[in-house]
Structures are given as C-alpha cells and as structure tokens.
Nucleic acid binder design. Structure first.
Lengths: 155, 155
DNA sequence: TGACAATGATTGCTTTGTTAAATAAATTAT
DNA sequence: ATAATTTATTTAACAAAGCAATCATTGTCA
C-alpha cells in the first residue's frame, strides 16, 4: 500500500489521491447530473444518447451522420447503431444525400419530435435545479472551465 | 426544426442549446481528459477502468468489492467482470473474507503494482498538464464545482 | 429455532464506448 | 482516364454501463 503524503505533490511524481482525481470527479459529476435525467427518460423508453440525438436534430434540423455524431458527442459506430434502433422505433428517418451519395442524411420524425415536446419542460426543470444549487454565476463558470478541457473547443 | 431564441431562457420551458448543455459539456471534458490517459495506458494493455481499480488498491490496500466499486466509481456488476478479467491477467487476487463469507476481498498483485509504478510518472505529467492549462486556482475550483454535482458528496 | 428481511456479490440482457478493419463514393494525381 | 488517395459511413469484436433478477450469507425477531 502506497504511503499517503499529505503535502503538496506538485514537485513529486505522485498522482493526486483518487478522491481528488479529475477523471473521477468528472465521472461522478456526470452521474449526478444524468441520474435524474435518466429517470425522466425511463418513461419514454429512450436512452440518454437517443435523447441527445433527438435534441440535436430538433434544434438544427436534418443533417448528415458525421455532423450529428459530432454535435451529439457520440462516436461514429455508436451513432450508426443508435440510428438503426431509432429508425426501427420510427423516431427518425435516414436518406442518402443525392449530391454526395456517401452521406446519410438523418431527419427526426413527428414521433421523435413528440418525445422532445412532451419532455422539454421536465428536462428544463432538472437543468434549472442544478443551475440553482450552484448559482447562475458558478454554473456558467463551470461550463467555461469544462469547455477548456475539450480539445475540440477553441481556447 | 425548433426556432432558436437568443434570449435568456430562465423563464421559458426551453432547454439550453446543446452547445451549452451541462451533460454534453461533462462528456466532452471527460473525453478531453481521458484521451491522453487512454493513449498512455494503451502500452500497458489495461483499460481506464482497470487503471482506476489498480490506483485505488494501491492507495488504500486490500478491500472488499463494494468499497472498491465505490472508490473507483464503478458499478457493482461492472466491477465483478473487470475483477474477473484482471484476475486472469494476474493483476489482482480475490479471497473470501472468513468473518463475513459474503465479502470478497481484493488485493493488488506485484504485477499490478508494477503497472502503477511504471506509469505514475507519465500519469502525473498528464494531470500536471491540465492543472497548467487551467491554472492551479481554477483547477481546484473546477474540482469543487464538480463535487457539488456529486450526490454522494457532502454539500 | 425458523421464517423473513437485509446485505454482498454475481449473472443475464441490452445498449454504448472504443479501436481497427472494411466498404463505397468522391477527389486527386499521373 | 484510371490508379491512388481521401472522405463518409458501416461492421466487427471486445470492454464497460446500467438495470433487473438471482444467489448465498448474515441479521432480525416473533
């Protein structure tokens, strides 16, 4: 068992204690945030990722799979499967782009949009709850700090 | 396609644009942080989760599966399977607690500890990199804000 | 004591994450 | 024009997440 040293570890080769580990803190925060959202989504029969796909499509309209994957923060292979199952549930449709026939254009269906419409309010309340516990300022600050850890982000 | 309104949405039923969504920000930040760590771990043949398990065992010594799952932020069923594969690789051992024979006590092996020892330095440098880009203050601040989103955490 | 609840852990099932390889259409270069 | 390259997407294979159900052991209490 490694001995814990309760000193600054900046000049040492020590990792921060797992209780102050950034990756673990990110996981736990995510779990805290997603837990009520998952609970809310359980009634709809769709998953967290499927909700994200619907959100993006609803917000920006039809788009190709690559852009969708990017905006919903999903990996390509994941999205392929997710789109398949969502098509079976008729939450979206998929058509080949005739200008560039490699591209698959995905569109939300009325049934998909209905799920969004039915749940926006609940979702917004959950978000508002977190904004409330942190306070508006710290909430925005958190989003900024998180953005700085995202390599895609400019900064 | 939903019309975007560029106004404050506090009093409306609108969700924040997906680009300012907390769950998505958390996913992206996590991806940004884990990407170099995964790269580093690729050489060792273990996954991010297995690394966490080794870290916790190395830091706190042998413990039962429940406590380990808690400290490594893994779900029980996940840990059961992860421990199985790690046992096959001889990174840890598992023995029944004789006082309470429901409990399984997990211990890191020398081979497991060696992976930690070989890579602590690299890992610490990666962490230091993030501390550097954010600055010591904002880094600590971020950890505090994230902790507030964790229901397990006191606060 | 003996039925019953509570606890610790595992198993089964479906979905997603992650990497690598394959396919297919478009672009570039020779 | 055709071979080589790049781009968009899919498939395959394995690890892990998340949820429900199961199993074994321990604890409670009538």
């Amino acid at each position: 068992m490694r001995t814990l040293k309760f000193v600054d570890n900046a000049m040492t080769n020590e990792l921060p204690s797992t209780s102050r580990s950034l990756p673990i803190a990110l996981i736990r925060a995510r779990e805290g945030v997603m837990s009520p959202i998952r609970e809310m989504l359980a009634e709809t029969g769709i998953t967290e990722q499927q909700w994200r796909v619907l959100r993006v499509l609803s917000e920006h309209g039809p788009m190709d799979v690559g852009t969708l994957a990017d905006r919903a923060s999903l990996l390509f292979p994941s999205l392929t499967r997710i789109a398949n199952s969502m098509r079976k549930k008729e939450l979206l449709t998929q058509t080949r782009d005739e200008n560039d026939r490699r591209r698959q254009v995905v569109t939300i269906t009325p049934a998909g949009q209905k799920i969004i419409d039915d749940k926006v309010e609940d979702a917004a309340q959950i978000v508002a709850g977190f904004k409330n516990t942190l306070g508006e300022d710290k909430y925005e600050q958190l989003l900024d700090l998180l953005a700085q850890l995202d390599p895609q982000h400019d900064g």
